[in-house]
Amino acid sequence: MATFKNFEDIEAWQRARILSKLIYEVSKKEPFSKDFGLKDQIRRSTGSVMDNIAEGFERGGAVEFIHFLTISKGSVGEAKSQLYRALDQNYINEENFNELYKLTDEVSKMIGGLIVYLNNSPHKGLKFKDRKNK
């Protein structure tokens, strides 16, 4: 796995951004747009996926990054559950559901892989780069 210079380099963040964009698109259409609670909740959860990847990366430490990745992964699970609610209320059709669910699953697996990689890496993060062990 390559070293990331920016959070935008992380493929999981890139895919999460696409997911968020697609959720905004489908939730703009009626009747979904009229269910303010579900619309806002699914938008927040998919936004949280990308935001927590970015925040964790910017903290500069592997342990903190892993912590934020686990929050991000939890938000993916939340979005998956909300997709079922949208499907059950006929806010999205089966095709939309399958496309969005597949993308959430892909993002979840990417985040999981990144967590495993970081857990096995000796790299502690940039904030520890110049510190001396005492």
Rank of each mutant, 00 (worst) to 15 (best):
F65T: 07
G113C: 02
A86W: 00
D40L: 10
V107H: 00
F68Y: 13
L83R: 03
A54G: 11
L22T: 11
G60S: 04
G37K: 04
A16N: 01
K109N: 07
K29Q: 10
I71D: 01
I10Y: 01
F65I: 05
K80C: 04
F128L: 15
W13A: 06
K134A: 14
F97C: 02
R85Y: 09
Q82Y: 02
G37D: 04
M1K: 11
G125W: 03
N98D: 13
I92L: 06
F128W: 07
N96K: 14
E95M: 15
E30R: 10
A54M: 12
K124Q: 11
N93M: 02
S20M: 05
S20D: 04
S20F: 02
L126G: 06
A79E: 07
N133I: 14
H67R: 15
S33Y: 05
V49K: 07
I115M: 14
F68V: 05
L19Q: 05
F4A: 09
G74L: 02
L126E: 10
T104V: 03
L103V: 11
S121I: 12
I42L: 12
M50F: 02
G113Y: 08
F32C: 08
T46F: 07
I111V: 05
K134T: 15
N52A: 06
T70Q: 05
I18N: 06
F128M: 06
N6V: 05
R17V: 07
Y117E: 08
G60N: 06
V116T: 08
D51C: 14
F128E: 15
D35T: 12
I10T: 04
F97K: 06
A62D: 09
R15Y: 11
V26R: 00
G125P: 09
G125K: 03
L22M: 13
A2K: 15
K39A: 12
K39G: 07
T104D: 02
S72Y: 01
K132G: 09
Y91Q: 14
L38R: 08
T46A: 03
S121E: 10
K127P: 07
E106V: 06
R43F: 02
L83D: 08
G77Q: 12
N93E: 04
V107G: 00
N6Q: 13
I23Q: 12
L19W: 00
W13H: 15
S27D: 04
I71E: 00
E8F: 07
K34C: 12
V116D: 09
L83W: 03
Q89P: 02
R59N: 08
S33M: 04
R15N: 14
N133D: 15
R15G: 10
N52G: 03
R131A: 13
N98C: 07
A79L: 04
R85A: 10
F36P: 08
E11H: 12
Y101D: 11
G61V: 02
E30P: 03
G125A: 10
E25R: 08
L126A: 12
Y24R: 09
F128H: 15
R59P: 01
D9L: 15
L103N: 13
I18V: 14
A12Y: 01
A79T: 15
G61D: 09
D35Q: 12
I23R: 12
E8M: 11
